[in-house]
Write a protein that binds this DNA or RNA. Structure first.
Lengths: 201, 201
DNA sequence: GTCTATAAAGGGATAGAC
DNA sequence: GTCTATCCCTTTATAGAC
């Protein structure tokens, strides 16, 4: 029978979750180990029983998140739904990621640029390259198939889509007035058809 | 005849410009006064001849930029061009702001949330409220006039537009392959009409 | 206007007791 | 697993010489 007291690994996971929230809200650099310790109700020295360094906390948070997200994207593209349905599924999956892992998305978005200067975080740039390939390929396929407009600058569209999706992590709150799926649908409505009223209706 | 040597105020402006670039690229907190001094080829103590503090540098950069931008927006809305033309003009003006003041836009986008916690930077939140009013009003007018779709969530559209426009400061480079106006036009094409190929063409 | 020198506070990390 | 105590480096800012 398990002890009622929290195990080491449960406590560890809890501390990492607390750290992720702080990193997301204030930025990694602005969050001190003392901030994390305070929020976890221990002293800063005690953190080092669980983690090697503050850097390793960030690393663990981002690695786990990006592996999961990329796996999700992979399973969507492997389903061969065609450009339009694939795009919709990727967007929905992205908003679901914001819903489930808001802190991780915010950290990825805010601190990637700075972190990827360090060798340890080289995988951030690698992931970005993979994401870009996925999106640009998707847009090009769609244009070739005639489902997307032929006059699009795919690189520009890619950047707009990527940024607009991820930036929602700044204001989206799980349990708020809009579900992840509702936000995704409004967003796809704008991306696919624009905000103008159609001439015929 | 002016002296060939740089005047105090010229040097001051130069240092402030250098600081803005560093703040934009690394974030305000991650940029140390020594970084700024190094880039300006002086020692850190010498900065305090020109400025009261690092904070006051940021303050000056943002105040000046936001005053100019808001003035530009005001003159557009006062021209009464109707919702669609006003929206286009505001978007173009925003991309021109990125073109002319890339560093300032990046600082505003990256550090506003953190800075606005301090009383000194309360105006950041005030400006955000004004921007929001402008955009939401514009979208509501457009829906009432029948130029924008009636099923839009104006708050959501506002956030998408705001974020997508400003986030371009992260990748846009003056003198690159695309001019500010070209980016604005591509962007307006997506926002107004979507990326789908129309049924009739 | 910039430098030398340094104060004062903040921040990451460690050693060993409990 | 957490605390006490502390080291050492970084960072902002100041005082006064040149």
């Amino acid at each position: 029978m398990p002890r009622p007291k929290k195990t080491d690994s449960e406590r560890r996971a809890e501390v990492l979750r607390i750290a992720a929230e702080l990193f997301a809200d204030r930025g990694v650099k602005q969050t001190t180990v003392r901030d994390i310790a305070d929020a976890a109700n221990i002293l800063s020295g005690s953190l080092y029983h669980h983690f090697e360094s503050k850097e390793s906390m960030v690393d663990e948070i981002l690695t786990r998140f990006l592996d999961e997200l990329w796996g999700r994207y992979q399973s969507i593209t492997e389903a061969d739904l065609g450009p339009r349905n694939t795009l919709e599924a990727i967007v929905v999956a992205s908003f679901e990621a914001i819903d489930k892992h808001r802190a991780e998305v915010a950290i990825f978005q805010n601190d990637s640029k700075h972190l990827s200067r360090f060798e340890r975080f080289g995988y951030l740039e690698e992931r970005n390259v993979e994401f870009r390939k996925l999106w640009v390929g998707l847009l090009e396929d769609g244009i070739a198939d005639g489902v997307f407009r032929g006059d699009l600058d795919v690189d520009l569209v890619y950047r707009f889509v990527r940024d607009t999706v991820w930036v929602a992590a700044h204001w989206y709150r799980p349990g708020g007035p809009l579900s992840a799926r509702e936000v995704a649908e409004q967003y796809l409505g704008i991306l696919l058809d624009g905000i103008s009223r159609r001439g015929d209706g």
